[in-house]
């Protein structure tokens, strides 16, 4: 594992993404709500480019106390979606939203001044 320089922090606006290849690995680096997140760009389903699709808020179904449904609503949590088949991953953990055991490999990000490194 080594620190690999991937860009300047000032070049990333919130919502920006960068896909990098380091050796055999492809990594998607997201800037979301001021934080950096980095995941393997290979979807755990059929190997699609997991980090390159739509980012979209998580959907929840709200229930009243009497268990009646208030329907589907967007929450403030963010997912990113593999564009091949729609596998949806939690932006902050890389876990599949319906099965938390299915988890993209997460890479640590280190920021030194304005330089951003991924540990890969």
């Amino acid at each position: 594992m080594a620190e690999q320089f991937v860009g300047k922090a000032s070049e990333f606006k919130d919502g920006d993404r960068q896909i990098v290849r380091i050796g055999e690995q492809e990594i998607g680096i997201f800037k979301h709500e001021g934080e950096f997140y980095a995941y393997s760009n290979f979807c755990l389903h059929q190997g699609g480019p997991a980090c390159e699709g739509l980012t979209i808020a998580r959907v929840e179904e709200r229930l009243r106390d009497d268990k009646t449904s208030m329907g589907l609503h967007f929450t403030n949590d963010m997912n990113f979606v593999c564009p091949w088949h729609g596998y949806e991953y939690d932006m902050k953990t890389g876990e599949h939203v319906s099965n938390r055991k299915i988890k993209l490999r997460k890479y640590n990000i280190v920021q030194k001044g304005n330089d951003v490194y991924v540990i890969a």
């Binding site: 080594a2 690999q4 320089f5 991937v6 860009g7 606006k13 919130d14 919502g15 920006d16 993404r17 960068q18 896909i19 990098v20 290849r21 380091i22 050796g23 055999e24 690995q25 492809e26 390159e52 890969a120």
Partner: peptide, 26 residues
């Protein structure tokens, strides 16, 4: 298999970071 492969590659030379694409926010 993949890990072994990358280990070999890494011994030969330090991996290069290749920026495949940048996807800005809207």
């Amino acid at each position: 298999k993949a890990s072994a492969k990358s280990a070999k590659t890494a011994k030969a030379k330090a991996p290069q970071v290749e920026i495949l694409r940048r996807i800005p926010a809207a």
